[in-house]
């Protein structure tokens, strides 16, 4: 099994935390996991991305040139990274902030920012998209992701944790109904 994932958007959308949650959840069941963030001056311009590789075998490169899945949170990221997707790959797009969701096969447009706003925290859009991803790519059990969301937010206030959990579950339901 080899699953290469790219998560991209703008700074503040929780790109890195989403990637870390996905990678940590995978660590529970898969022998090989890598997470690689964009770093330093590169991220100061406002874009943010990270790559996660999940595998049953050793991972030679944590920064693959092609990916099997992507979670795209804004238009500039879609324009920049869409070509990295393998043929038949999965693209999950934040339709609220992408004016032209790609008309490629396998693209799932999710009005994530709008949905998150209705849940009470616009910043939880990332967890909605992670939920959609977990529903479609069944490489990791949803309960493992939930456990990692708990671990990531438990040190902060309880409301933040509950809205993120809620958002993830909303994403799961959205993904399963599609």
């Amino acid at each position: 099994m080899l699953e290469r994932v790219l998560i991209a958007g703008s700074g503040g959308q929780g790109i890195i935390v989403t990637g870390k949650i996905l990678a940590s959840a995978s660590t529970r069941t898969l022998p090989c996991v890598t997470f690689f963030p964009s770093y330093g001056a590169e991220v100061r311009g406002g874009t943010s991305n990270c790559q996660i590789v999940l595998s049953t075998n050793e991972i030679p490169c944590p920064v693959p040139s092609r990916v099997d899945s992507m979670i795209i949170m804004n238009q500039p990221s879609m324009d920049r990274y869409r070509k990295m997707l393998v043929h038949g790959g999965l693209m999950i797009v934040n339709a609220t902030l992408c004016v032209s969701p790609a008309k490629m096969a396998g693209t799932i447009a999710v009005p994530a920012t709008g949905m998150a706003e209705r849940l009470g925290n616009i910043k939880a859009a990332n967890m909605i998209l992670l939920g959609v991803y977990a529903a479609h790519r069944k490489v990791i059990p949803a309960e493992h992701v939930e456990a990692e969301i708990r671990a990531a937010f438990s040190e902060r206030d309880a409301r933040l944790l509950s809205v993120n959990l809620e958002a993830f579950r909303a994403g799961l339901a959205y993904g399963r109904n599609r």
Binding site: C32, V33, T34, F35, P37, P62, V63
Partner: peptide
């Protein structure tokens, strides 16, 4: 190197 420093693994 920067890649080994920045990447996460178990």
């Amino acid at each position: 190197d920067g890649r080994l420093g920045q990447m996460m693994e178990p």
